[in-house]
């Protein structure tokens, strides 16, 4: 099988986000970058699928500035066979990224299955997976918790609202967006880390994948940090009075009910 994984490099969850002085984006200086955790699930799933199907290969793709190569090395160390880096500027939006990834995938001789995370943990947009599938004109299943691989396609268990699940069948080629619970991503072994350092990463420019700045549909103008967290409020009194006061606060101060 020809297996592909699209990953995104995101700031580590512990990062204290700072903004650029002109508020056009976040200040990337000093940020520790990691693979978005949902994308790690996608990588793990691709490796397991490959290992069950001898002769298969896993190719990892990422679109973004030069820094994303580091995360691609991590994916290679986990066990991916090949890597393709599509060079895009820092501010590229979901559409440009998705169209570029799709462009890179179209250049591949045969694509059987594509894995992604259900969303990236930085912007949490959950757009790129679907957009990639749309640009490729293939089926996609998102928020997937379990996959059964059949000869002609997949049977996926996906999470839907209200804590319920639904079963979805789709035929190859298919894109699957992973949800937490699908698997436990592995820790790269040292021999694989060493091998990953020497693997070649194929670089594609926007011109190679048929996209340009005009594919950027969103322009970010004024980033704002969320207001600082306020101290908690303790409501006293007997249970009835507490409930009444809580309802009043939710209605009048928080304005949520």
């Amino acid at each position: 099988m020809n297996i592909y994984v699209c990953i995104k490099q995101v700031p580590d969850t512990e990062t204290k986000i700072k903004l650029n002085p002109d508020q056009s984006g976040i200040d990337t200086a000093g940020i520790k970058w990691i693979i978005s955790p949902y994308d790690e699930l996608a990588i793990e799933e691709s490796l397991r699928l490959r290992d069950k199907n001898p002769g298969s290969t896993v190719t990892v793709l990422a679109a973004g500035p030069a820094r994303v190569v580091e995360s691609m090395r991590t994916a290679l160390a986990m066990g991916a066979d090949n890597a393709i880096h599509v060079e895009l500027p820092e501010a590229a939006d979901n559409n440009w990224v998705a169209k570029s990834l799709a462009g890179a995938l179209k250049k591949e001789p045969k694509v059987d299955i594509i894995f992604t995370g259900k969303e990236a943990i930085d912007d949490g947009a959950a757009q790129v997976s679907q957009l990639v599938a749309e640009y490729l004109g293939i089926s996609y299943v998102t928020v997937v918790l379990g996959i059964e691989y059949l000869p002609s396609g997949v049977k996926c268990k996906r999470e839907i609202e209200g804590g319920s699940f639904e079963m979805v069948e789709a035929s190859y080629p298919v894109l699957i967006a992973a949800q937490k619970g699908l698997n436990e991503p592995r820790y790269a072994s040292l021999p694989n880390i060493m091998k990953a350092k020497k693997k070649e990463i194929k670089v594609l420019k926007t011109s190679d994948v048929g996209t340009s700045e005009s594919d950027q549909k969103i322009r970010y103008k004024n980033y704002q940090l969320p207001p600082p967290k306020q101290a908690g409020k303790k409501i006293s009194g007997d249970p009835a009075a507490q409930a009444k006061e809580l309802a009043r606060l939710l209605h009048e101060e928080a304005k949520v009910v």
């Binding site: 969850t13 512990e14 204290k16």
Partner: peptide
């Protein structure tokens, strides 16, 4: 690996 501490805290802190 990411924050140079066994606990999950930002190295900036």
């Amino acid at each position: 690996e990411t924050n140079a501490s066994p606990w999950a805290f930002a190295s900036s802190d």
